[in-house]
Design a binder for these strands. Structure first.
Length: 425
RNA sequence: GGAGAGAUGGCCGAGCUGGUUGAAGGCGCUCGCCUGCUAAGCGAGUGUAGGGCUAAAACCUUACCGGGGGUUCGAAUCCCCCUCUCUCCGCCA
């Protein structure tokens, strides 16, 4: 959420950034409601001041045993008026709040203008794209041939976009989770979290999934909870409505969770294989930092995520999302994309973002530098470190052999009892 | 699921027969003083958010005692609803 004061004072900037994101918002209405609000506030507060003053006087008169009927009669009228104005103010503030919740974050000045995916500047590439003496297969064929992925039964058990992992497939997924968590906790200094996989509405509001993106979420109607679409939600909300002591910042958290997404609006896209599922595993990285350092922290976060692919020796590139592709809550986002030889394309495997104070303001996460300073909003960041299912499929496609087997990346072997290769039997 | 108890400032904890309580007392913290063998004592200060005024402060003002409504001239205190926590019983991985 943006600060209404900021919008008021930087209206042109906010307008132009929104339109560069491809959004049309009614800022005239916002401005109008805001000035009405301040007007009402002034009126009602003056009346409340009067009421408070006279009520004090009534108390005094009562103690002195004097008559106070006139005062009460008069205040009765004032109270009626306050009640009416308070109602108006309340409605006004609700509408303003609704409008503000729909305004996206302001992109960082380094974010390039562009309309979509195709316009994202590529900022680096790492690793060597493997050459094959045979035609590399997509992972769904590899997985089915090795009997480690079963898409048909996943659909039978639940429905489309659910997959059954089996044998070494299931173990490989589990080993990747452990490998990533160990890397981030032992070498990158993150604290491991195992959060709830369902959250309430307030938490979804806090990170920006609600109210705008309800159609992407799975909801449990009877209790009103939502299945998390990413660990970002429960982990960022750890500190909702808290004031964090400046001395404990920055905070680094990492969490493995399954993620649940309806993938509304992506019908017909990636219908085969593991790329786009309603349920997938992810190891997430979340940071709470002081504002001055947040862009340095973003670079470090990106490196921490990249490190997983470097250790696994899987080629990838990094793109800097342009205005049109940038997420609603984000100020700046780097996507890491892995190379998939079986499909001859890059696919996103991590998204690392700085939200600046956008989420912190919504979730009311503040910090106090020291005892003397005022509270300020923290900056929050997060990134996948990494999407586990997509990492698995990247291994299958990049490490596939002509005989249909798949070599296990060396870094992962200790997590799989030393196995070097997945073969047909 | 049944019965009961509770939710107050950074923390602990009074107030809850409605009116000098933004909130006693203690702890913590900040500044100052005193004294100086690891410590203590004394004094002052110490919430958050919004609005107005301002170059900025100072200042004025409103709201906030889990959340939301209500009663009242006036609510931390009374009433209703909700959420959460704790204890006991039941069920259960």
């Amino acid at each position: 959420m943006l600060d209404i004061k900021f919008i008021r004072e930087h209206l042109d900037l906010v307008k132009s950034k929104c339109s560069q994101r491809g959004l049309k918002l009614n800022f005239d209405l916002i401005t109008k409601i805001d000035s009405e609000r301040r007007n009402l506030l002034g009126k009602v507060e003056a009346l409340k001041y009067e009421r408070n003053t006279v009520s004090d006087k009534v108390g005094k008169l009562k103690r002195e045993g004097k008559d106070f009927r006139d005062e009460i009669a008069e205040m009765k009228k004032v109270s009626q008026e306050i009640k009416q104005l308070d109602q108006l103010l309340h409605d006004n503030e609700n509408s303003l709040e609704q409008l503000l919740l729909e305004i996206p974050n302001i992109p960082h000045h380094s974010v390039k203008v562009g309309e979509g995916e195709a316009d994202n500047p590529e900022i680096k590439r790492w690793g060597e794209i493997p050459r094959f003496d045979f035609t590399p297969l997509p992972h769904w064929d590899i997985g089915e041939n090795l009997d480690i992925l079963d898409f048909a039964r996943g659909s039978k058990i639940t429905g489309a976009r659910f997959t059954l992992y089996k044998g070494l497939g299931a173990q490989l997924e589990r080993s990747l989770i452990n490998f990533m968590l160990d890397l981030h906790t032992q070498q990158h200094n993150y604290t491991e979290i195992l959060p709830p996989f369902m959250v309430n509405k307030e938490s979804m509001m806090g990170t920006g999934q609600l109210p705008k993106f309800e159609e992407d979420l799975f909801k449990l109607e009877d209790v009103g909870y939502y299945l998390i679409p990413t660990a970002e939600v429960p982990v960022t909300n750890i500190h909702r409505n808290e004031i964090i002591p400046g001395t404990s910042l920055p905070l680094y958290y990492t969490a493995y969770t399954p993620c649940f997404r309806k993938e509304a609006g992506s019908y017909g896209k990636d219908t085969k294989g593991l790329v786009r599922q309603h349920q997938f595993n992810k190891v997430e990285l979340v940071k709470f930092v002081i504002p001055e350092t947040s862009y340095d922290e973003l670079e470090k976060l990106l490196l921490n995520a990249e490190e997983v692919l470097k250790k696994l020796n899987i080629p990838y590139r990094v793109v800097d999302l342009c205005m049109g592709d940038l997420g609603f809550s984000s100020s700046k986002t780097y996507d890491i994309e892995v190379w998939l030889p079986g499909q001859n394309r890059y696919v996103e495997i991590s998204s690392c973002s700085n939200f600046e104070e956008f989420q912190a303001r919504r979730a009311n996460i503040r910090y106090r530098k020291d005892n003397k300073s005022k509270t300020k909003f923290v900056h929050t960041l997060n990134g996948s470190g990494l999407a586990v299912g997509r990492t698995l499929l990247a291994i299958l496609e990049n490490y596939q052999q002509e005989d249909g087997s798949v070599v296990i990346p060396e870094a992962l072997r200790p997590y799989l009892g030393g196995i070097e290769r997945i073969t047909k039997d």
